[in-house]
Design a protein around this nucleic acid. Structure first.
Length: 542
RNA sequence: GUCCCCGUAGCUCAGCAGGAUAGAGCGCAGGAUUCCUAAUCCUGAGGUCGUGGGUUCGAAUCCCGCCGGGGACGCCA
């Protein structure tokens, strides 16, 4: 139809010409022109069977390796000293999936957690701690060290202090001033503050690693805002010298408006009027750092949609300063929507607080355990093996519930739906895969790659298996894992219907039985691959 | 005030580089298990795609206005 527009011919005429050519090929058993000019093609069983055989023999299931070059993915971004809560789920699991997808596609991927460890929140915690424990040597300016080797604070205390400090600063301008001052002094290298900061980092990183491990999320690089601290003074100097940065109202800013702007674009603040760096400073320096260290072809930011203006400012400044030349690197903002409660406002627990990530995961595990017991699954296994299955089910539920939403739109967080096991859920997908595994075990099936014999019952599933490459391409080009979710679900659903319509093991026709087993084997492979790109693992039984 | 996002079934969401009768899950009504894992499957009811214009042979999809909701807008991240 699009061709008709270009050719300036009636769509049906064009369709007829195309059909005439296609008829010369023997891949199609039926070619129809429908409606205003749609061409409906039906591939022959032989063609489809041969194609299946090809992708069955391919370790990549027919997906080409299209990625080239290095890409840095900036995701996770948890703040040091702050407990990981459900709000961190999105960035982490979307970013993780994007990394997996890009790695699979052939890119050299560096996933960077980019910790929030250099901003005012650090000063807030330091000044709050000073109120509570003024006797710590860290606050004594005359103290020359050494500071205790072991952290002087526990994770639990830190996680309690942070929200308290944050609230106090918000409510009280004086407290805020203290926090800013502490931030500035920390950045300037005050020894006691640095020692405290080191403790915060040690303690919270430990907690994060535990949480991320539970979710099966890993990062290639554990850098953060503070990683570029040494680059900041020379960068400011350089930008001031080159004229890109100017003094304004006591601060140093980079004006970034363009002549053809149709909207107001506020300048990027490079240095605050108190001399401290802020996240725009570290983000800009981080681009410089990444270019120097990795020379990436792309930098992808998987961060909150609400930061789009900030990130645009950083991108513009980086282009202007020449830190990220357009012909060298793509700067991509893959923003995600807010996680809201059922009331449409940003999610809070009933008590008004945040829901900690580990509590959410535990809720999922509990439900999984209960369900397993009810269904008498894995009763012969030991506790550790059972727990492993419960863990996989919980993680599948959580990740799939989140990832199936379109990345950029807000979504409603509902813990009951998030940990549901029926319908369009992670556990449903696992369940279908597990049924196939069980079937293949019973059949003692070795991947024989026999010729496929396709009947009407097999056809839908077979056709769906050939769709994988275009699904991956869509997910990749949009940095959008939900395309994978949609496909995995359609595949699982199609399999389930197939499984219901024919009894495979008792099929008397040997060739058909073998073909169906091969189709099942292919299905579980594709499912496993698709889910692996979502960061979801399949147990052997459930 | 400027800018961005969203508005699709009772609820939660897909679909939006224009295309055929707008899909899914949950919920609701009904049905399926002597057989490979029922965390399943099948059937049904349920929609002025917020609204009014425009572009087009054709609009949920693109453009403009309006209404409603959310968000961002120099020294928090």
């Amino acid at each position: 139809m699009a061709a008709a527009k270009i050719a300036k011919k009636a769509p049906r005429t064009v369709a007829e010409d195309i059909v005439a050519t296609l008829k010369k090929h023997d891949a199609f058993s039926k070619i129809d022109i429908a409606g205003p000019g749609f061409i409906n093609l039906t591939v022959t069983d032989d063609f489809l069977a041969a194609h299946l055989k090809t992708i069955a023999a391919d370790p990549r299931c027919g997906v080409p390796e299209t990625g080239e070059g290095t890409v840095v993915v900036d995701y996770g971004g948890p703040n040091v000293a702050k407990a990981l809560h459900v709000g961190h789920l999105r960035s982490s699991i979307i970013g993780d999936s994007v990394c997996r997808l890009m790695k699979f596609s052939g890119y050299h991927v560096l996933g960077d957690i980019h910790l929030g460890d250099w901003g005012t929140q650090m000063g807030m915690v330091i000044s709050e701690l000073q109120r509570r424990q003024p006797d710590l040597p860290h606050f004594d300016r005359d103290y020359t060290g050494p500071y205790p080797a072991e952290p002087v604070i526990t994770l639990a205390t830190l996680e309690e202090i942070y929200p308290a400090a944050s609230a106090a600063c918000k409510a009280d301008e004086e407290r805020m001033a203290l926090a800013r001052m502490a931030t500035k002094e920390l950045q300037d290298g005050r020894a006691g503050y640095r020692a405290l900061w080191r403790d915060f980092l040690t303690v919270s990183t430990e907690g994060m690693k535990k949480n991320f491990a539970a979710l099966g999320i890993s990062f290639d690089v554990w850098k953060g805002e503070s990683s570029v601290q040494d680059l900041i003074p020379p960068m400011v100097e350089e930008l001031t010298h080159s004229g890109h940065a100017i003094k304004d109202q006591g601060a140093i800013i980079i004006p970034i408006e363009k002549n053809d702007d149709k909207k107001e674009v506020p300048p990027l603040i490079l240095v605050k009027s108190d001399g401290a760096a802020m996240y725009s400073t570290t983000d800009l320096a981080t681009i410089k750092d990444r270019m120097a260290a990795y020379a990436p072809d792309k930098i992808v930011y998987v961060i909150d949609q609400r930061q789009s203006l900030h990130i645009e400012q950083v991108f513009r400044a980086a282009r202007l300063a020449g830190y990220a030349p357009e012909n060298e690197v793509d700067l991509i903002f893959a923003g995600f929507g807010t996680m809201n409660g059922t009331d449409g406002k940003p999610f809070k627990t009933r008590a008004g607080g945040v829901l900690k990530l580990e509590d959410l995961i535990e809720t999922g595990r509990e439900k999984a355990r209960a369900r397993m017991e009810e269904a008498h699954v894995a009763e012969d296994m030991d506790a550790a093996e059972k727990e492993d299955i419960a863990q996989k089910i919980a993680v599948a539920a959580l990740k799939f519930a989140d990832l199936q939403n379109q990345r950029q739109s807000d979504y409603v967080f509902d813990i009951d739906r998030m940990t549901a096991f029926e319908g369009k859920t992670g556990p449903y997908l696992l369940y279908q895969a597990v049924r196939i595994k069980s079937l293949l075990r019973k059949a003692n099936h070795i991947d024989s790659r026999e010729a496929f014999v396709l009947t009407d019952i097999d056809r839908d599933l077979a056709l769906l298996l050939t769709e994988l490459p275009e699904v991956i391409e869509a997910a990749l080009s949009h940095y959008a894992p939900h395309y994978l979710c949609d496909y995995a679900y359609r595949l699982a659903q199609s399999f389930s219907g197939f499984y219901n319509r024919c009894h495979i093991l008792s099929e008397e026709n040997d060739a058909l039985r073998e073909s169906r087993l091969a189709l099942c084997a292919m299905t579980v492979r594709v499912l496993e691959l698709t889910l692996s790109l979502l960061g979801i693992k399949i147990p052997d039984r459930m």
